[in-house]
């Protein structure tokens, strides 16, 4: 019997479950390596060469090079791991989160100051307008 995944109907959300974790293992472990200053320096010096040291898929490497976090998450990335790329780029968590919403940095920041994204219309895909 397949495992129940009731979270699949939440809009704009990918739950990092065992399936995603398996897909993204090497992508996330690459991110983890950026917690060492010398690795950050080597990555920044030649991103492609550094990525080629990891047994990631070509698509995962392209998603990292494009800094497309939604794409990275689709390919098994987890935000807490992906945040190491943002940190390496000198980005804040707010900049990273905002980059996935289609909003500009200012629009996202203003939305948060105004109380954040409303839950109304965002509970399930069926509810979403």
């Amino acid at each position: 019997m397949a495992l129940e995944k009731p979270y699949k109907d939440i809009p704009g959300t990918t739950i990092f479950d065992a399936e995603q974790s398996r897909k993204g293992y090497h992508l996330n472990q690459f991110c983890m390596s950026l917690m060492k200053a010398e690795n950050r320096a080597r990555f920044k010096a030649d991103e492609r060469a550094y990525l080629d040291e990891w047994p990631m898929t070509e698509e995962q490497k392209q998603a990292v090079l494009a800094r497309d976090l939604n794409w990275c998450i689709h390919l098994g990335g987890n935000i807490y791991f992906l945040a190491k790329i943002g940190a390496t780029d000198g980005k804040s968590f707010q900049q990273m989160a905002g980059s996935m919403t289609g909003m500009s940095e200012e629009e996202y920041r203003d939305m948060m100051i105004a109380g954040g994204r409303s839950i109304e219309g965002n509970r399930s895909i069926g509810e979403k307008k």
């Binding site: 704009g12 939604n70 905002g98 994204r117 409303s118």
Partner: peptide, 17 residues
């Protein structure tokens, strides 16, 4: 408390919850 850091739903806040 309420927060979402990923995907197009990032920025979710639910005061009532």
């Amino acid at each position: 408390m309420s927060h979402q850091l990923q995907g197009p739903r990032a920025g979710l806040i639910n005061r009532a919850f």
